[in-house]
Simulated assay, not measured.
Amino acid sequence: MLLILIKCLAYFSKNLNFFFINFKIRLIMSLLTSFIITFFLSPFFINYLNKKKISQIIRKEGPITHYSKNNIPTMGGLILLLSIFISVIFWSNLFNKYIFYALFLMILYAIIGFVDDYYKIILNNSTGLSPYKKLFFQSITTIFIIVLIYINNTEKIYIQYIIPIFNLRIKYNLNLILYLTFSYFIIIGISNSVNLTDGLDGLVIMPIIFISLALSILCYFSGDIYFSKNLHFIYIKNIKELIIICLSIVGSGLGFLWYNTYPAKIFMGDIGSLSLGCIISMIAILIRQEFLFLIMCGVFILEAISVIIQVLRFKYDKKRFFLMAPLHHHYELKGIAEPCIIIRFWIISLILVLFSLIIIV
């Protein structure tokens, strides 16, 4: 049944090309479609969640100021993912294998995030799925899609190092084991880092928007023979279609930010943070720009490192390195206002994204 549905959607998508004026129109429409869906459906979804009392579960050891957020609806990621999915279905070519890889991984991670959020709500605690179970399901999903990509790839797979200042590009050919290992840690690491960062109102969604915009530029460069040659990128045929996903994320993110900005009326939950983290990671892997992507994700990586340092320090001598981890909670306990922390993290994220784009020139 699922196979028939996919074939029907693919046929519908292919024949819609008759109505398309050009690729630029599709890009604009993908952004507007996802924005409109998120912006106008979110109030209804918020009311529904309030009626069903599906609200955020605040961890007991968290900052005291967060206790007031205990009744704010969660699982807003459902609207985000729905808007992205609908926009991509309508405005992209579903016969494009890169679209399939990205959407497929996003859906699988959405299921994991949904189960995690569901467990938190029915068990009335902030734990949800145990870290080991979550990692297990993420690992199975990630390994499956990476192996699928590698097997179906007809050309050699490279990773590309770009060394700033010296303008050096180093390409390294990967076998299955290296490709699997490298891609696995990027997808698992970034998706969970995004999940850890999602602790303040609007903190995650704006960096996701910045990164998605940058990835859309890199997709364009990678899919254009002229630009890829001049920038010494790896040329990848038909990869430009991924720009539609990138701009759909931007549109849905902007619509969601309207309600998620401080003071938030809705949270995205694990279903949103895990899915968004995995799909931007997947796009970076498909365009072979993993190292630039890691620079862009500096804020997420820093948040994850703060948690690792905190755990290791506490296990070593029962003392804390930070007042609280992740890092944004540390600054909260130092008395910095939440909106101030959010905006400063946004600024840092923007600087890292701009830096990653500057060094390719």
Rank of each mutant, 00 (worst) to 15 (best):
L148I: 08
I187K: 07
V194P: 02
I122V: 12
D224C: 08
F166D: 14
L196N: 04
I143W: 00
Y150V: 06
P131N: 09
M206I: 15
F210H: 02
Y226F: 15
I121W: 10
I163K: 09
Y184N: 08
R169T: 12
N124V: 15
Y158T: 07
I177R: 09
I170Y: 14
P207W: 03
F221W: 05
K120M: 15
I151M: 06
L218I: 12
D224H: 00
R169E: 05
F185N: 10
V147M: 11
Y161E: 13
S191P: 02
Q160P: 03
T154L: 14
Y161H: 15
F185V: 01
C219W: 00
S212Y: 06
L213E: 07
L215G: 06
V147Y: 11
L148A: 12
Y179W: 06
N153T: 13
T181W: 10
P131Y: 10
T142I: 14
G189E: 03
S193I: 00
Y179H: 13
F144I: 14
I165D: 03
I170A: 02
I159G: 04
Q138D: 05
I162S: 02
S126G: 00
L203H: 04
F166P: 08
N192T: 02
L203K: 11
D116P: 07
Y179E: 02
K156E: 11
N125Q: 05
L203W: 02
V115L: 14
L200M: 10
F185A: 03
I163W: 12
I157D: 01
L218S: 09
Y119P: 04
L180Y: 00
V115A: 12
I122C: 11
L176Y: 02
I122N: 09
S222R: 11
P207Q: 09
Y226G: 05
D117I: 11
F182S: 15
L168D: 10
F182K: 11
N124E: 10
I140F: 14
N192F: 00
S130D: 11
I209M: 01
A214R: 08
T154N: 13
Y158L: 15
S191G: 03
I170T: 05
I151Q: 11
L200I: 10
A214T: 14
Y226K: 03
Q160V: 13
S139Q: 06
D117C: 10
L174D: 07
F182H: 10
D116T: 14
G189Q: 00
P131G: 14
F166G: 01
I208H: 04
N173R: 11
L218Q: 13
I163D: 09
L196M: 08
I225N: 10
Q160A: 12
I157E: 04
Y179S: 10
S130G: 11
S212F: 00
P164Q: 08
L129K: 08
R169W: 00
V194N: 06
L174T: 08
Y132F: 12
G223L: 05
Y220F: 09
Y150T: 00
V194R: 09
F185T: 01
K156G: 13
D201I: 07
T154I: 15
N125K: 02
N192K: 05
V204E: 11
